[in-house]
């Protein structure tokens, strides 16, 4: 299936001309809170959830875009309303089939996470906790013996469901996914959507499970993962050491060359760079083990050569900083 998708250009989900300029939800309060995209004030008794006008159809909509393979996923694609289609600069596919390197400080849409969750547990989420679980509210109108089945049907479109736990008396459920990326995607894709009937889902991040049994289980999972990674690291270290042993004969010569190189540096700094910063892109994870080493090298070389730095560089850089400020305020 993955091949099929990659061949086909992404479908245009929404006609750009049909989008209204004002995307505020219908007015239910006195003032609009731009941070929460909600009306505040006024009568709070009337629930101001509005059903989303669009919905992602994974099979139909996903496809190739202009985005490079390591780019994040398009947020509007997940919401079902990307008006750029094949011209989009972000990927139009599920998180499981992307190569996007998952940096823990960003979500699968490339948005920066924060240290803590928002007060309402909505938003991008926290980088301090690996959270695979979503809270799903607004299930009151579904009959009890159908809930699990309906949730499974709708949510497994976006990822592999690990566990579903329904609180029948409260009309909400907790859905765990295999990975955090899938949870992130499902959260955006199913926000304010309805299932088989006309209920409107309200999806948030789940806070930590207070059940001690579940906590222990999570702990065990983490330990298993840690074991695995440590084993992997060890094998990498061994590989590296084996490689090193092969080179030992030439070491004296290499050192000599290194010194010469650093002398050259003064006259032509860029030429010397590959010597130091040269990293194998393919083995980026393995080389990171020695990153401290190479950084130290960089540091020491910088000290050696460039201590008497000319000040003009500084002045010029300040002009740049203004641009940067402008960039920041955009965020």
């Amino acid at each position: 299936m993955a091949n099929l998708i990659s061949d086909r250009p992404a479908r245009l989900q929404v006609d750009p001309n049909s989008i209204a300029d004002d995307d505020k939800p219908p007015q239910t309060g006195t003032s609009f809170n731009i941070w929460f995209l909600k009306w505040s004030g006024g009568d709070s008794s009337s629930k101001n959830y509005v059903k989303s006008k669009f919905r992602l159809n994974v099979k139909k909509d996903s496809g190739s875009t202009r985005a490079p393979s390591n780019s994040p996923i398009c947020l509007f694609f997940a919401r079902g309303c990307c008006y750029k289609g094949p011209k989009c600069n972000y990927q139009h596919r599920l998180p499981s089939s992307t190569k996007h390197s998952n940096i823990p400080t960003q979500d699968c849409f490339g948005r920066d996470k924060t240290a803590d969750y928002k007060d309402d547990m909505d938003g991008v989420g926290s980088f301090n906790r690996y959270n695979r679980t979503l809270y799903v509210g607004g299930l009151n109108s579904i009959s009890n013996n159908k809930i699990e089945n309906v949730l499974t049907k709708h949510f497994q479109e976006f990822g592999s469901i690990d566990k579903i736990r329904v609180l029948y008396d409260k009309g909400c459920a907790f859905i765990s996914f295999k990975t955090e990326e899938e949870a992130q995607f499902a959260k955006e894709a199913m926000q304010s959507q309805s299932l088989d009937d006309d209920e409107i889902l309200n999806i948030r991040w789940a806070s930590e499970d207070p059940n001690p049994h579940a906590q222990r289980q999570e702990q065990r999972r983490l330990e298993e993962k840690a074991l695995e990674t440590v084993k992997q690291l060890l094998s990498q270290v061994e590989e590296k050491e084996n490689k090193r042993r092969k080179v030992t004969v030439e070491e004296v010569e290499e050192e000599y060359e290194g010194e010469e190189e650093s002398v050259k540096l003064i006259s032509a700094p860029p030429a010397a760079l590959p010597q130091i910063g040269a990293t194998d892109p393919s083995s980026s994870s393995s080389s990171s083990f020695f990153s401290g080493n190479s950084l130290a090298e960089l540091k020491s070389i910088r000290r050696k050569i460039l201590l008497p730095t000319p000040s003009p560089v500084l002045k010029e850089s300040k002009v740049e900083l203004k641009d940067m400020l402008a960039y920041d305020s955009d965020d």
Binding site: I103, P104, L222, S285, F289, S291, G292
Partner: peptide, 15 residues
């Protein structure tokens, strides 16, 4: 920037 462990390149909670 990425908050991976700087020596091992693994997530902090795992480390």
């Amino acid at each position: 920037s990425c908050m991976f462990d700087i020596t091992y390149g693994i997530p902090l909670d795992v480390r």
